[in-house]
Design a protein around this nucleic acid. Structure first.
Length: 152
DNA sequence: AACTTTTACAACCGCAAGCAT
DNA sequence: GATGCTTGCGGTTGTAAAAGT
């Protein structure tokens, strides 16, 4: 019944990746290309599930990643695209070369959302926060974790 | 200097889409 | 068409580092 969880295997590592694991993953992808994540871990000699390998490669190890701070242009583009597409991070990332969906999502949640709230803009609807405390209650609750009270 | 709180981001989890059988 | 598997996505969590007290 149902799907078999990809990470069920008992002897798979979790948590932060080591330099050696990174090197193994990079070497394997360079040699064989992306794809077939399911079989990659054993083929590359990694004690990780395929899902974890894919995520590590896409979000951290890919050679074409830009990394570093977002430029003002990127910042504005993300806001604009978010107002059009919503939380479709992969679609937004597709329009920002060198950036990943995870990176953009993190950046949104830690920087942009707070900035918009500070300007009195609802980060969900991109409209002014008229009934501030009561509307979009979800985002207000979520905002607490990100320290929404601190507007510099 | 020690402790606490906040921030930033890497990584995990569950779900759904898409494909193969 | 039904079923099962893999991949990809978005939400969420864990934790190291930075900032504040």
């Amino acid at each position: 019944m149902g799907r078999s969880p990809c990470c069920e295997k008992a002897h798979t590592n979790k948590g932060a990746w080591t330099r050696e694991e990174d090197e193994r993953l990079v070497a394997h992808v360079r040699a064989h290309g992306e794809g077939c994540w399911r079989s990659l871990p054993s083929a590359a000699g990694l004690l990780r599930c395929g899902k974890s390998c894919r995520l590590r490669w896409i979000n951290y190890l890919r050679p074409d990643l830009k990394r570093g701070n977002f430029s003002r242009d990127e910042d504005e583009l993300i806001v604009k695209l978010h107002s059009l597409l919503g939380n479709k991070w992969s679609l937004i990332a597709a329009r920002l070369p060198g950036r990943t969906d995870n990176e953009i999502k993190n950046y949104w949640n830690t920087h942009i959302r707070r900035k918009l709230l500070g300007r009195g803009i609802d980060p969900v609807t991109h409209r002014p926060l008229t009934d501030a405390a009561t509307c979009s209650c979800g985002s207000n609750f979520l905002g607490l974790r990100a320290g929404m009270l601190d507007f510099r």
